[in-house]
């Protein structure tokens, strides 16, 4: 039962990733069709916002994994 759930979850996740991928490509492409008024030069780079979002998210998750290695303790750590 659990296993089937997991497989279902993975399938859903894969579908979601594909759908998201398509959405991302569309949104990235949208950069070409309108004019931005921006404050920083790097905002003109094609796909800056998308790239920033992706990299930040990966960075945050990897940072959190590292943090967890360093600072995670048992739940009763303070009660001992």
């Amino acid at each position: 039962m659990e296993e089937r759930h997991d497989q279902n979850d993975r399938r859903h996740l894969k579908q979601m990733v594909s759908a998201l991928g398509v959405l991302c490509v569309l949104l990235g492409g949208a950069d070409l069709v309108y004019h931005k008024h921006v404050h920083f030069d790097f905002e003109y780079w094609l796909g800056f916002y998308g790239g920033f979002g992706f990299v930040s998210c990966v960075g945050l998750v990897l940072g959190a994994r590292l943090l967890r290695k360093l600072l995670q303790r048992e739940e009763d750590y303070y009660d001992r």
């Binding site: 993975r10 996740l13 894969k14 979601m16 990733v17 998201l20 991928g21 959405l23 991302c24 949104l27 990235g28 949208a30 950069d31 309108y34 931005k36 905002e43 796909g47 916002y49 998308g50 790239g51 920033f52 979002g53 992706f54 990299v55 930040s56 998210c57 990966v58 998750v61």
Partner: peptide
């Protein structure tokens, strides 16, 4: 559009990491 890009790519990164 920029906000949607930011959010969509964050979602994509999450899903990829999860996968």
């Amino acid at each position: 559009i920029t906000q949607l890009q930011l959010l969509a790519f964050t979602g994509l990164a999450f899903a990829t990491l999860k996968l």
